[in-house]
Design a protein around this nucleic acid. Structure first.
Length: 556
RNA sequence: GCACCCGUAGCUCAGCUGGAUAGAGCGUUGGCUUGCGGAGCCAAAGGUCGUAGGUUCGAAUCCUGUCGGGUGCACCA
């Protein structure tokens, strides 16, 4: 409806004033109407005319709208045009889809991206939840979404972990691995990693040994080795990590990944690209191969170390090529922590010098750090990580009182996911367990409850849904809010910002509660139309929550 | 030193492609409590939108300076 109105008015402007403009309608305060535009104010200078005159001329044309959508078009203030839709048009709008923003588009979405040999911490949980929601929102607007998980299965962090493992089990003894209980494998690896990382910092001998292990691990891939003692430990523990990731994603009920791209598989294609552009894009410098970003106003980054090993830059370039080969995407969206935004600019700049068309398909979005009450940042290197499983357990324990276990799990997931998603993506977020599990106010459980309550009303209704009646002021007010759903999802998809949906759903629930407080549904003479409204409300809540990866049980 | 991000009510945050009296939750104070599920609703208090300029008919929103916080700047990922 919004899009159609914008196109209509845009045509009118061209007819009347012979200029081409993109008209934008916004949702004003309810007192002003259903839609508003300031297009007359914008045109005023360009046309050298009084904005109110322009607005009056446009409003007059809008009143003649042949589609019977507009009940009134008023000029207000300095030159706003306020539209009020007919009830019919508003009802249609409340049932409209999300637009065709991404229809037919193939979008590759890369997120979560944990490193093998490490535990998942709260940051991973946040990014996984956010990435999952973005994927669902893109799909809702017509995109074919491919979910990719790019993680480090080679590199110094792996070597540190392997070193720690050898220390823990008393040498490179693969047979000892069977003594590690299956359910504590991830934690065991994490402890080994911390041990290795600590030794790397404190002990020069350990450091050089770890560097040797790092070289050896690369060779396990390039000259396949599954037999040597260290290789056996490596491959076994690597698989432990992937099993653990998969189990975790299932537990938090996010969409499965279409493909994992371990860094070991992206190093070669990355190196190939770098070598092909030596001397043109990349240059030798102090024995290393670098891209000099200064030319693009950025900084220099190393692609191949002086020891000949590919860095993350090379692997990250490699994965771009692997993914486009697999899915021939129109657009690639990669999500990382916001500390990598400068880094990613350099990688994209280098890619632009290699293949501008491919570089133009790249979009980098970032998520902030999860901070806890005291403002401390987490660091896996220091071992003071708040593990994702701990957060989940803590939240679930808090909501578990007097509630069946299955339901507690549903509510806990809703609480955690919503408390992450309601913030605008990009900035750091404060995570307060007590607040996140709060069932009151702007929370996931509040919306789940609101949905269950609406379903309960519908179950009691005897009249069948019927939207043919004229509307009362309160009914229309609720319908107006319902009609904003489609454009809200379109906006969230366009900006890759799930929080718009959270904000909207919460406002919608408030609008409904306000309506419900003063207007009887079941047994009322207006039951049919109200049942229709409640039905739309429940459906929108359910659908909106599903886009956030949150379930909407009928009872709770 | 250079670059990027952030600074809105006591706290946590929306609002930021410039527009009509700056919004919400939590917390505080008061009211609604035999309700179709009160996990709710109504009301009050609380903000010179870090700060100083600039652009504009109009700035929380754009630009510049400045202060404060965070992050990143070659062989880690």
């Amino acid at each position: 409806m919004k899009q159609e109105l914008e196109q209509t008015l845009s045509k009118i402007v061209t007819e009347l004033f012979d200029v081409t403009v993109a008209v934008e309608f916004t949702r004003p305060d309810e007192q002003f109407g259903d839609y508003a535009t300031n297009i007359a104010l914008q045109l005023s200078k360009q046309l050298g005319k009084n904005p109110r005159e322009i607005a009056e001329a446009l409003a007059a044309k809008l009143r003649d709208d042949s589609f019977m959508r507009i009940q009134s078009a008023e000029v207000a203030g300095p030159g706003f045009i306020n539209l009020r839709l007919t009830d019919e048009a508003l009802k249609q709008s409340a049932q409209a889809g999300f637009g065709d923003l991404h229809a037919g588009k193939r979008i590759l979405l890369e997120y979560s991206c944990p490193n093998a040999f490490k535990e998942l911490h709260t940051g991973h949980l946040y990014q996984t939840v956010a990435g999952d929601a973005i994927g669902k929102i893109l799909e809702a607007t017509g995109a074919q979404v491919y979910r990719a998980n790019f993680g480090g299965d080679v590199g110094l962090h792996v070597a540190k972990c392997l070193y720690g493992i050898a220390q823990t089990i008393g040498g490179e003894l693969p047979s000892k691995l069977s003594e590690v209980p299956e359910q504590s494998r991830a934690e065991w690896l994490s402890k080994a990693y911390v041990q290795g990382a600590t030794a790397y910092e404190a002990d020069a001998a350990a450091k050089s040994q770890i560097i040797e292990i790092n070289n050896a691990v690369y060779l396990f891939h390039t000259m396949p080795d599954h037999e040597s003692d260290l290789a056996q430990i490596y491959w076994t523990c690597r698989q432990w990590s992937y099993d653990y990731f998969k189990a975790f994603y299932e537990r938090i009920e996010v969409a499965p990944f279409d493909k994992y791209y371990p860094e070991s598989t992206t190093a070669e294609p990355g190196l190939k690209v770098v070598r092909e552009h030596m001397g043109t894009v990349f240059a030798q410098s102090d024995g290393a191969v670098v891209y000099k970003g200064e030319d693009a106003g950025l900084h220099t980054r190393v692609y191949i170390t002086s020891k000949g090993l590919p860095t993350y830059e090379t692997k990250d370039t490699g994965v771009i090529y692997e993914e486009v080969a697999d899915y021939s995407y129109d657009k690639r969206v990669i999500m990382t922590g916001n500390d990598q935004s400068e880094y990613m600019k350099v990688v994209f700049a280098a890619l632009h010098a290699i293949d501008a068309e491919l570089a133009d398909k790249q979009y980098h979005i970032t998520n902030g750090t999860v901070r806890f009450g005291n403002g401390e940042k987490m660091s896996s290197r220091l071992g003071n990580v708040t593990r994702a499983v701990d957060v989940l357990r803590e939240v679930q324990n808090t909501v578990a009182a007097e509630r069946p276990e299955a339901e507690a799990a549903e509510v806990a997931l809703a609480a955690v996911k919503y408390s992450f998603l309601k913030h605008r993506l990009g900035g750091d977020i404060a995570f307060d367990i007590q607040e996140s599990v709060s069932l009151e106010g702007n929370s996931g459980p509040y919306l789940q409850y609101a949905h269950a309550r609406a379903r309960s009303v519908l179950a009691k209704a005897t009249a069948s849904a019927d939207d043919t009646q004229e509307l009362t002021a309160d009914e229309r007010s609720l319908l107006r809010k319902l009609s904003e759903y489609g454009e809200t999802v379109a906006k969230a998809a366009d900006e890759l910002m799930p929080h718009h949906i959270c904000t909207y759903l919460y406002e919608l629930a408030q609008a409904f509660n306000k309506f419900y407080e003063a207007n009887r549904v079941v047994g009322n003479e207006r039951e049919a139309i109200r049942v229709w409204l409640v039905g739309r409300y429940a459906d929108i809540l359910q659908n909106g929550l599903s886009l956030l990866g949150i379930t909407a049980p009928d009872r709770m």
